[in-house]
Computed example of a mutant assay.
Amino acid sequence: MSALTFRQAVPADAERCFEIESIAYEGEEAATLAKIHTRISNYPQGFLVMQTEGKTIGFINSGCAHAVVMSDEAFKELVGHDPVAPNVVIMSVVIDPAYQGHGYATAMMQTFVKQMRQAGKQTIHLMCKERHVALYAKQGYRYVKPSASDHGSMAWHEMVMDL
């Protein structure tokens, strides 16, 4: 594994993050460039960028809520987001496909969880496809239920980690 660095996103990261999101996610599940810009500008503390050799190769972005409704599509644009709320909602966990399979997603997730603990958050929520449920379970998330969301016309599963 190459040396990794992690930092908070800045507006100049939006184009590269959009590029990664567009090639890593299927169909309409990828966030638009406008949504990525909104997430960076409205909650940079919840937007973690991972780099190796100065190149951005992955990121996690999130928002915070007092009451989590995972099927709330407006929340993906941070409508209802409150940075001081205790519950983190992850919207994207993405690695450039050219860098997948090297343990980078695990390293990035562990760094993100550590930062959210340090920020005093209580839970981290996410939705994933069925094939990723076991991966997140190994990271410490517990399965909640099949999601009511049909984001990108796909089936999703809700998971949560208590911090």
Rank of each mutant, 00 (worst) to 15 (best):
L33S: 05
K55F: 02
M50A: 11
L48Q: 08
Q51I: 11
A12T: 15
V79I: 11
A3G: 09
G101Q: 04
Y136E: 07
E73N: 05
P86R: 05
H66Y: 09
Q8K: 14
A34R: 15
D13P: 06
I60N: 10
L126C: 06
F18Y: 13
I36F: 07
D162I: 15
C64I: 04
G120M: 03
T5F: 05
R142C: 13
R39N: 03
G120F: 04
K121S: 07
M70I: 07
F18K: 12
Y99M: 10
S41G: 02
V160N: 05
S149N: 02
L33H: 14
A155H: 13
V79G: 00
C128N: 08
S147G: 04
M50C: 12
E158W: 10
R7C: 11
E26N: 08
V49P: 10
D72E: 01
K121M: 07
V160H: 05
L135D: 02
M108Y: 06
G103H: 05
Y99E: 08
A31S: 14
K138Y: 01
S62N: 07
Y143G: 13
R131L: 06
G140F: 11
T32F: 07
D82L: 04
I95W: 03
L135K: 09
V94I: 12
R117F: 01
H81M: 02
M108L: 15
Q100E: 09
